[in-house]
Nucleic acid binder design. Structure first.
Lengths: 249, 249
DNA sequence: CGCATCATTGAAGCCCTTCAAGACTTGTGG
DNA sequence: CCACAAGTCTTGAAGGGCTTCAATGATGCG
């Protein structure tokens, strides 16, 4: 990656640093034990599975670059996408705690992933209470995202899609990408929002006609953030660990 | 409660014992630190909130008896019920890790609840690694339930409702109640499945006409478990911590 | 008994789905 | 450099599942 195999360890913008700031780990040295436990790094090309349904390996996976989606297939073959994942997110940390073999993660764009052996996580948890709590928090934050997706199902298509796009926009911003172009196909947005591809397409065009999305290309490009937020009744509080941590009495 | 205020500590059928067996705590003495940390017990009558949206208190709540629902209100006033909760379930353990003030829990039947101060949880986690992991597992199991509810939204009404009823049936069985009568109003089932009350009612009557539910009363009484499981494409694996724990390599 | 709550039923209509086909974009090989 | 194929987006038409509104039964409780 970028010539140096240690890019992810030496760069100050390590995706895990940002992620764990959001989880309450402010000092980079506190994060070191975890960063150093990331063992194998490899690429996964767009469309392939990062991890599959089946027996759970004794390791968890971190997304270091790219966009992925966490999903499970239905009996009829369709997918329900639980959430999208960005650089710094764990793909399957919940499997460290409770191995379940139902769901899978697929690469939405070309990805770079790392793996952390579960025995290393066990050691980290035993020795570093702060990191232990942060890891727990990471799974809780994921759960909050899924709950918002469930809540989103109550909304009609226009608001539902707007809301989904808002979340991706905010999370893209957080990882420093171009947050205005959403790098996700309409098919995948459909699988994430429980709508048919056809209706997804029609509704996206409604958003274009409203001037919220650009109609200059087939890409999903956000022109008016605030109108999108408004249409989608979006409140990103559930994404912001820092803000959530300040809520306690 | 039942004359003795220590009923929940002295009975062998303490709801937490069953719950934590499912989470990997087999020996009752391992559970003692947590059981003894349950401080205040009180009743909550049907319809009232067990806990509310707003500032997070420095404690978490355990459901000791009854049925509750974990929900969040939408902008239009409707509720999205994330999941139902039964004796032994934590209502808001996730708030220990990440205080969020959005959601609430309401009593579906008369309930008895206990509270555990967060500082006690912190001590338990520091001193008892097994319990720490089990608590984490509890939140992961909850998250799995919510994911199944999200997946369920892809199904048409008949299968969706059947699936929802199956989950409640299995979880009721686990707490030793009468698992064949689901103690939940149609309105709440509607809020949990994203359907209108009217359509919920019509579909329940379809299930009655199919002979899957009893048509002898207005209660939701299951006559044919296996047919219900079949219609709802239900696989309760995600509820069974013991089975999930056996999946690791 | 009267009132509140919940279940039930009917009618009208829209949101969304499915099926099917065409257009645009991209990449690949001759 | 063009032809072709694969993938994705787009559009049309028909239909059904579900919603909303509104009103009528049941049940239980003070």
């Amino acid at each position: 990656m970028d010539g140096s195999s240690d890019w992810f360890r030496t760069t100050p913008a390590h995706p895990l640093v940002r992620k764990f700031r959001n989880l309450g780990i402010d000092r980079d040295e506190d994060l070191q034990p975890l960063v150093q436990a990331i063992k194998v790094k490899r690429k996964v090309v767009r469309g392939r599975d990062v991890l599959r349904t089946g027996r759970c390996p004794a390791q968890s996976t971190v997304l270091l670059r790219g966009v992925a989606c966490w999903y499970r297939t239905m009996a009829n073959g369709r997918r329900q996408i639980y959430s999208f994942q960005y650089a710094g997110d764990f793909c399957d940390l919940h499997r460290y705690v409770l191995p379940d073999s139902y769901d899978a993660v697929a690469a939405q764009t070309d990805c770079v992933i790392g793996t952390v052996p579960h025995e290393d996580i066990t050691q980290i948890i035993g020795r570093h209470p702060k990191l232990a709590l942060a890891l727990w928090r990471a799974t809780i934050l994921d759960a909050g995202i899924v709950r918002e997706r469930l809540r989103n199902m109550q909304r009609p298509a226009l608001a539902r899609i707007a809301n989904l796009l808002c979340e991706q926009m905010v999370r893209l911003e957080a990882v420093g990408g171009d947050a205005l172009v959403i790098p996700i196909r309409q098919l995948d947005l459909a699988d994430a929002s429980g709508l048919s591809v056809v209706h997804m397409n029609r509704t996206i065009q409604d958003l274009r006609r409203l001037g919220v999305l650009s109609d200059q290309s087939r890409a999903i490009e956000i022109l008016h953030k605030d109108r999108l937020v408004n249409i989608g009744q979006f409140d990103g509080g559930y994404l912001d660990g820092r803000e959530l941590l300040s809520h306690s009495m």
